[in-house]
């Protein structure tokens, strides 16, 4: 392979790419927060809710977990206009990622709720804790510790998942890579730089999340 790398042409675009990375982080953050709201509500319904509500939540989770996010967004972006609902590409991506995250986060949180330890709650009850005190001092700290690592992990996966926004023309990190590629045709240079930016950004996020998890919840987390 007689390909000569010419990064010179691509370097000036790095600030432009970094702004794209910032947008990627924003999309991931918004979708994660939305997904947490949906996921917490759905997990609560699955744990405490009545029959038909649980079925509804199950149908939602099972559908979104068993189909690709990409095709879900295709559907939102291309099929909803036929029903008179017009979403911008950004909104379609954000909505798709939020609904998708909601389904996965429901599953993760339900597993966390179920890890409540009967023996600890019995001990708390014997010690005369009120229901609220049990939640505050026994259940929440434990659930937070158990949930934080898988939630962090999903957040990192979602940051990577934002790259499919490029397919719909959103100018986040990968989208901007396609833009530069069509201007300069230095494909390998552009995409290798973008790959490294993703590695650095997610690595930094992993380190921060691991530090926070250890400090706040004494959760055991490894970065590499």
């Amino acid at each position: 392979m007689d390909y000569t790398f010419q990064y010179g042409q691509v370097w000036p675009y790095v600030p432009y790419l970094l702004k794209g990375a910032w947008l990627s982080l924003q999309i991931a953050f918004l979708a994660f927060c939305g997904g947490m709201l949906i996921g917490t509500a759905c997990a609560a319904v699955k744990t405490f809710g009545s029959g038909w509500m649980r079925h509804g939540v199950n149908a939602y989770v099972v559908f979104f977990v068993n189909t690709p996010q990409l095709v879900q967004i295709y559907f939102l972006y291309f099929a909803l206009p036929d029903m008179g609902i017009f979403l911008s590409s950004y909104m379609a991506v954000l909505l798709g990622m939020t609904l998708n995250a909601g389904a996965y986060l429901t599953e993760i949180q339900r597993a966390g709720f179920e890890s409540r330890r009967q023996s600890e709650m019995e001990a708390a009850e014997v010690l005369g804790f009120s229901r609220w005190q049990q939640i505050r001092y026994v259940i929440l700290p434990h659930v937070a510790k158990v949930l934080f690592p898988p939630l962090s992990n999903h957040y990192i996966l979602m940051t990577l998942g934002t790259s499919m926004a490029a397919i719909f023309g959103v100018e986040e990190l990968t989208g901007r890579a396609f833009n530069i590629n069509s201007e300069t045709f230095r494909s390998l240079e552009v995409f290798s730089i973008v790959a490294v930016i993703y590695v650095v950004v997610t690595l930094a996020a992993s380190v921060l999340l691991a530090l926070f998890g250890r400090f706040a919840f004494r959760a055991k987390m490894r970065v590499v």
Partner: peptide, 14 residues
């Protein structure tokens, strides 16, 4: 670490 931290789409394009 590299291939777990680069999006599928970017690896694909590379």
């Amino acid at each position: 670490e590299f291939f777990r931290r680069v999006p599928f789409l970017v690896t694909l394009m590379l």
